[in-house]
Design a binder for these strands. Structure first.
Lengths: 133, 133
DNA sequence: GCAAAATAGTTACCCAGGTAACTATATAGG
DNA sequence: CCTATATAGTTACCTGGGTAACTATTTTGC
């Protein structure tokens, strides 16, 4: 198995998935990274930026920037945390309201992406990815 | 199997791989996308930008930008193609000279990334990725 | 032969990943 | 108590993915 080829294919597929996810999300004025944060906040409730950063494995400056965009378009709002340093990020009413519909659309998207994989293959893929890197 | 979770893990792993590849390439003043093009040109010989774009599955403006950087740092040079429109991109002597060493370093990197996968798992991963998207 | 369509590449501008260096606040230790 | 260190977040800047709209050249087809 050619390593280079394998890594390249991995890259390519992920780019394709992100691209099509962005197309799917376009109707809501959302982008893939923003959706990740939205999902994260629905799953965990209000979080600090450091918590989001750790949960998603994305650096803090990246989170700062994406949150700024989401705040500007009305998806999230910030409140002071238990510190003067900490900021608690929470969903707006608009986000709470639209979430279920978007989740459904994303779910259909993911289903299409994975449509050619059996349940067994999905589990295999998952387990292999866990061992990767 | 939670689809969302699977897609998220896929994303995360690819980001990690790119990050570590960039660290590996830093000593040569190269970046992952530039390495892809370098590898592409060694494999196929001189190519037009459209050919590179098709081969790597990356949009043409992205290729234009990356090539501009690579030209500025002396990895590639452009010559007129069979057209007044076409540009043939080729490696510089410097690139030819350094290629083997970089290839070796990248190969070691990929090996480390894949170290926890058996040969069978690598093939499984490859075949599953082919069915994805 | 000339206008319409296709092709090659570029430019301008999004979003998103990263690092390095910074501010402000909070915590620990001498 | 006061300084040193750690933590939360931001700013500035890099690479790299994308789209839309553009120029310039070449083909196509009437």
């Amino acid at each position: 198995m050619d390593q280079q080829h394998l890594v390249h294919l991995l890259n390519q597929r992920v780019r394709y998935i992100n691209k099509s996810l962005n197309e799917t999300l376009k109707q809501y004025g959302l982008y893939s990274a923003q959706w990740s944060i939205l999902f994260c906040l629905v799953t965990n409730g209000s979080m600090t930026q450091t918590e989001i950063s750790n949960y998603l494995n994305v650096e803090k400056p990246t989170v700062t920037r994406t949150l700024k965009r989401m705040e500007a378009s009305g998806w999230v709002e910030k409140a002071q945390g238990k510190d003067k340093r900490e900021l608690l990020v929470g969903l707006t009413d608009m986000a709470e309201m639209k979430y279920e519909e978007i989740k459904e659309v994303v779910s259909i998207h993911d289903q299409e992406i994975l449509t050619n994989l059996t349940e067994g293959e999905r589990e295999t893929l998952y387990n292999i990815l866990l061992k990767l890197g």
